[in-house]
């Protein structure tokens, strides 16, 4: 119980500080006292509203920022670049050779945010769009046969699992047995 309260207080402080930093960046005023006071007030109000709505949990304010996710984003950027060229070639070729496919892949992520990261990564790479989430499966619409590469998509899923297991160490064992499949 005490631990829970401490974690809530920690999240509250982290969220308030983050909101204040965003307020400073977007306004650009650093020396007007009245504006700064109102900025702090509005940040605290927003954090309190979040607490009051009961959405101040691990999904909205993750406390541990892991370096793994930045490497994952870097890798994702390269993947996005590669598949963009494939789709662009299809657009500009005079005779399009599309062969759309519907495929299903398993999502082994434990947490909801892990599943959302996986589905959004699939959608973010052009050529594959996640259409539906049926329990453990993600239904994907792919533009061509080359892009409907199940092993490459599952490789992405394993990467998400690895990042997730560093984020939630208590879920590690389950993530491992799921990610290996």
């Amino acid at each position: 119980m005490v631990k829970f309260l401490i974690s809530i207080a920690g999240r509250f402080i982290v969220l308030s500080l983050a909101l204040m930093v965003i307020w400073l960046l977007l306004s650009g005023y650093f020396d007007k006292t009245t504006l700064l006071v109102f900025g702090v007030f509005s940040a605290l109000l927003c954090a309190w509203l979040t607490l009051h709505m009961g959405i101040l949990d691990d999904d909205s304010v993750p406390l541990s920022v892991m370096p793994g996710i930045f490497f994952y984003w870097l890798w994702l950027f390269i993947e996005i670049g590669k598949s963009n060229f494939i789709v662009a070639m299809q657009v500009w070729s005079p005779k399009m050779s599309l062969s759309p496919q519907m495929i299903r892949v398993k999502a082994h992520q434990i947490s909801d945010s892990g599943k959302a990261t996986y589905a959004n990564s699939i959608t973010l790479t052009p050529g594959t769009v996640s259409v539906d989430l049926l329990g453990e499966d993600i239904l994907i619409h792919a533009l061509t046969e080359d892009l409907a590469d199940v092993s490459a998509i599952e490789d992405m899923g394993r990467k998400v699992c690895r990042v997730e297991s560093t984020m939630h160490p208590n879920l590690k064992t389950k993530a491992k047995e799921g990610g290996g499949a």
């Binding site: 996005i80 963009n84 789709v87 399009m96 599309l98 769009v129 619409h141």
Partner: peptide, 21 residues
């Protein structure tokens, strides 16, 4: 691509090109 592709689901991929790269 949004204009040329044959149906809704394929056009979706084309709009992804604008949104990302």
């Amino acid at each position: 691509g949004l204009l040329r592709f044959p149906d809704f689901y394929t056009r979706m991929h084309a709009s992804g090109v604008t949104d990302t790269l």
